[in-house]
Design a protein around this nucleic acid. Structure first.
Lengths: 226, 226
DNA sequence: ACAAATATGATAGTAATACTATTACTTTTG
DNA sequence: CAAAAGTAATAGTATTACTATCATATTTGT
């Protein structure tokens, strides 16, 4: 088997899979084509049977990697936030000004992937679209506490923790950094969805980066005065 | 049949049901017990078969009122926002100061139902819990455009429109009122959920109304300066 | 008061989903 | 080169998300 592991590997708790999908060709195919399929038909319509037809492998083979489609979505979500942590690290290292680092973080949280659209063979544009449209389903259900216990949301928490410490640098007395960050992350996702489907619930602007500007303005005003 | 319609009726597009559930005893039972059941087992686990067992009526009878459980959730959501509009109207009428009206609106959007817990026989505390935990599923799916066309989100849009016009009164040049409001509404829902299940993603405080204070502060700072 | 319309109950049936199980074949590896 | 591990092929099950049919009960208009 050729080496499938590149220099940077996104670490994901082994509790989310039965067998590491990055350890075999079939596993990688499941992830890559799974992203394509969820992106094209949506998570509700997505089944392992359909994915099996796509990759020309039986449904049962996919079940050897993931217990069910919910865990597959948890896996993709964890991978996404692991990758976001990595991007945050790169974007902020060697930047002295905390405010500049915060700006980079907000940009990452609110804007779509642009360059670097492929990493470890994963289509990052599609993966991000999945996270925007489906990620809230990873926690808005009765399995959330169990999933949390096995570390399903660890990389998301770490990301939020990292941005929170930037805010603490800027204003050490500010009491709600995590609340503010998750409001921005989930808010930005919703606004992007609304802009496409329910425009009256948002205020789409023609100018580039209006979303990150809106949220950056909101964050700075909120944490600075008082 | 006795009169089931009280003085104020929440108007809901007839496209969301096959037969108006407020027009019969069975219909009301479906709605009341349906709220109880979704609240207790979650929307994924909820089926019309289970609800049928609860109300001792066959599954098929429920299908005469709602095409499927997704439309049932849309109906509950529409009802909730219709009721919120009504609450907003009551809370803001005869209040001269726009800022005071905005404060009341933010309070409604971010705090849990407290008094008035029963309206038309509907358990509003449970209904609100359902909206917090499940409402995003009403639009985060492939049927959103179809549902939007038949007016499923009308009362939510109206509510947002009403609050937006208060913001416009305070700052007529502010460009993102709807974006700001939906960020607050969806954000507050998420924070309440996080406080219970993923505490590291929020900053829960022991003091009362910390959520509405956080969001009121955020809104005022955002719309005022500049 | 009574026929017609309407609402509900009882029951059955179907296609698809979300899995589990078994056995056979094919690679990889020590 | 044999044992172990991975994959394919196939079949089977319980549940879900409906649809259909027919009998019975209730309401309604005249």
């Amino acid at each position: 088997m050729k080496n499938l592991i590149a220099s940077v590997k996104i670490a994901i708790t082994s509790q989310l899979y039965l067998k590491d999908p990055e350890s075999s060709e079939l596993g990688l195919k499941i992830v890559h084509k799974g992203i394509d399929l969820i992106n094209s038909i949506g998570f509700e319509e997505f089944t392992f049977r359909k994915l099996g037809l796509e990759i020309k492998s039986p449904e049962a083979s996919i079940y050897r990697y993931f217990e069910n489609k919910h865990n597959f979505l948890l896996y993709l979500n964890a991978w996404y936030w692991g990758w976001m942590e990595y991007r945050l690290l790169i974007a902020t290292s060697n930047v002295v000004s905390a405010e500049k680092r915060l700006e980079k973080a907000v940009f990452l949280m609110t804007e779509g992937v642009q360059n670097d659209p492929n990493f470890h063979g994963i289509d990052l544009v599609k993966l991000q679209e999945i996270v925007v449209a489906e990620a809230s389903k990873t926690f808005l259900n009765r399995r959330v506490d169990k999933a949390n216990k096995v570390g399903a949301y660890q990389s998301y928490k770490d990301f939020v923790g990292n941005v929170a410490s930037i805010i603490k640098e800027i204003n050490p007395t500010y009491r709600y950094p995590s609340m503010l960050i998750t409001t921005v992350v989930e808010g930005a996702h919703q606004q992007r969805f609304f802009a496409e489907h329910l425009p009256r619930l948002t205020n789409k602007q023609p100018k580039p980066h209006y979303l990150s500007k809106f949220y950056m303005d909101l964050v700075l005003k909120t944490i600075k005065s008082n």
